[in-house]
Design a protein around this nucleic acid. Sequence first.
DNA 1: CTAGACCCTGTACCTAGGTCGAGAGTCAAG
DNA 2: CTTGACTCTCGACCTAGGTACAGGGTCTAG
Lengths: 133, 133
Amino acid sequence: MENTLSIGQLAAAAGIEVTAVRFYERKGLLTAPPRRASGYRSYDQAAVQRLHFIRQAKQLGFSLAETAELLELRVRPGRTCSKVKGQAVQKIADIEQKVKQLKRFERALRVLIAQCAQGKTDGECPILDALEH
Amino acid sequence: MENTLSIGQLAAAAGIEVTAVRFYERKGLLTAPPRRASGYRSYDQAAVQRLHFIRQAKQLGFSLAETAELLELRVRPGRTCSKVKGQAVQKIADIEQKVKQLKRFERALRVLIAQCAQGKTDGECPILDALEH
DNA sequence: CTAGACCCTGTACCTAGGTCGAGAGTCAAG
DNA sequence: CTTGACTCTCGACCTAGGTACAGGGTCTAG
């Protein structure tokens, strides 16, 4: 048992389609894996983790390009620590902004529910009304 | 001064393209506005607010269809309070999930920065390493 | 009353993110 | 040693979310 995965096993483990895995490879989100003698792709467990990350990032509104940047965030020849840090700080700011907006939405939804319970059924667009505090 | 907006003024106020406004109308995210005698669309200030909401929702990873649902969340003939509430509760759960994921990402980025500062430059994919606490 | 900027309705096109099919090779069970 | 499931590449196709004409009317400053 070598614990390596075929593309089909990987796709199943990550809950996506085989074709999507190859698509991500072409787009540079997954590095091309080693091949067996037959030419079949051979993945390790880390690939599952990467795919989960990609799926989550997508749901959070990050584009594939942004997701790729997140996955590439590391120190390497030509990418100094301070540059990486700068990028990470920027990403953190983006994320904090998203969290803030989501919490506003959530608060608005709670206001909406409360109004609903009080029989206030007349708002033109309650979620927008609720958003203005 | 009637304080009504042409489609161009609306688009400028919301920071999007005129064609996008018409596109949202076709998709049902904006209700068709009244027309002037000439056939020109005539918007009120509330439209600006709706467009801002649409833009934000998009950035947070909501599809146009989900955004439309959020904007339609209200009590009306055939949509009882309890149904609306049920949907709102569901949306809140979605949002909390997103916030949780975003905070995990943020934490991972902070770990990455800390490692960076310590001269640890050898991680294969630091953000994934950092995500596993 | 005319030039330039704006608006109208189509229809066609574009990018991102995938999905599908054809044609051919590979692997595992019986 | 064959049959069915899996994999390969490559190119065409698809959906979502817009953008860009084309061909025509409208508005306003000079």
